[in-house]
Simulated assay, not measured.
Amino acid sequence: MSATIRPLRRADRDAWARLWTGYLDFYETSLPQDVYEATFSRLIDPDMADMHGLIAEQAGRPTGLVHYLYHRHCWRVEDVCYLQDLFVDPEVRGSGLGRALIEAVYKAADDHGTPSVYWMTQEFNYRGRILYDQVATRTPFIKYQR
Rank of each mutant, 00 (worst) to 15 (best):
Q145G: 10
A38I: 14
L31D: 02
P62F: 04
V135S: 09
D79S: 11
A104I: 13
Q134L: 04
T63M: 04
H52E: 08
L31I: 06
V35E: 01
P140C: 03
L24C: 08
V66W: 15
Y126C: 02
D111R: 04
L69D: 02
Y23W: 04
R61Q: 07
A49K: 15
S95Y: 04
L69Q: 14
K143C: 06
R129K: 08
G96C: 09
F26C: 01
W16H: 07
S41Q: 12
E28R: 06
G98F: 12
I5N: 10
D14H: 11
L24E: 12
G64N: 09
G94Q: 03
H73K: 08
E37M: 00
A108Q: 05
A56I: 08
E78T: 11
E78V: 13
M1K: 10
T139Q: 13
T4R: 09
Q134G: 03
Q84T: 09
D110W: 11
I142L: 11
A109R: 07
D34N: 08
V66R: 10
S116P: 00
V135Q: 05
L65Q: 01
R76I: 02
G128C: 01
P32D: 11
R138L: 11
G22Y: 04
G113C: 06
H112R: 14
F141D: 03
I44K: 07
P62K: 05
P115S: 05
L19S: 02
L83A: 11
V80Q: 03
Y126K: 14
P115W: 14
Q84P: 12
P7H: 13
D45V: 06
H71E: 14
V117D: 08
Q134A: 05
Y144D: 04
M51H: 12
F26V: 05
R72Y: 15
S116D: 15
T21N: 04
T29W: 00
L43F: 08
V35C: 00
K143R: 10
R18E: 15
D47Y: 13
R9S: 14
L54C: 02
L86C: 01
V92C: 03
M1P: 15
R76Y: 13
P62M: 07
D50T: 09
G22P: 01
Q33H: 01
V35W: 00
H71P: 03
Q134N: 07
Y70N: 03
S116I: 11
Y68I: 04
L131C: 05
E103P: 05
Q33K: 04
R146D: 07
V105Q: 13
F26E: 00
R76P: 06
D89H: 07
A56K: 08
R61C: 05
Y144K: 08
V92Y: 03
E123M: 03
R129S: 10
T21Q: 11
Y132Q: 02
L131K: 03
D12E: 13
R13W: 12
D110G: 14
C81L: 13
G53H: 05
P140K: 10
L83G: 11
R129W: 01
Q33N: 01
K107E: 15
M1T: 15
G113I: 06
R9G: 09
T137K: 11
I102D: 06
K143T: 11
H73M: 10
F26L: 05
E103L: 07
G22F: 07
R72S: 15
W119P: 04
Y68R: 06
R61K: 14
R76C: 13
